[in-house]
């Protein structure tokens, strides 16, 4: 993976972390975590750990769905 790609995917992951930590709504936080996952997966896959990439990309949505059961529907802002 060349340097410009590392910069781009690292930037995506950092943006996701910032969005997840700064947003108020729990739904926006979950979208930020999805963004963070999207930035991390190419780093895992580029090293050749494709099985780890498959496991992570299937575990994160399951975790999100379980968290959504806890938060419930959002009241109007």
């Amino acid at each position: 993976m060349i340097a410009i790609l590392q910069a781009i995917f690292g930037g995506i992951a950092l943006l996701g972390a910032i969005a997840a930590s700064l947003s108020k709504s729990s739904y926006d936080k979950l979208i930020g975590i999805g963004l963070l996952t999207g930035g991390v997966i190419p780093f895992v896959a580029a090293r050749g750990y494709l099985d780890v990439a498959i496991a992570v990309s299937l575990l994160v949505p399951v975790t999100t769905i379980i968290i959504l059961q806890v938060t419930g529907p959002e009241e109007e802002r």
């Binding site: 739904y27 979208i31 498959i54 990309s57 999100t64 419930g72």
Partner: peptide
Amino acid sequence: AAAAYFVGSTLESNAIASAY
């Protein structure tokens, strides 16, 4: 891996939109 990531991400968007 690409298909698993794509389906997982779609499922996540689906769940977030439905819960919202």
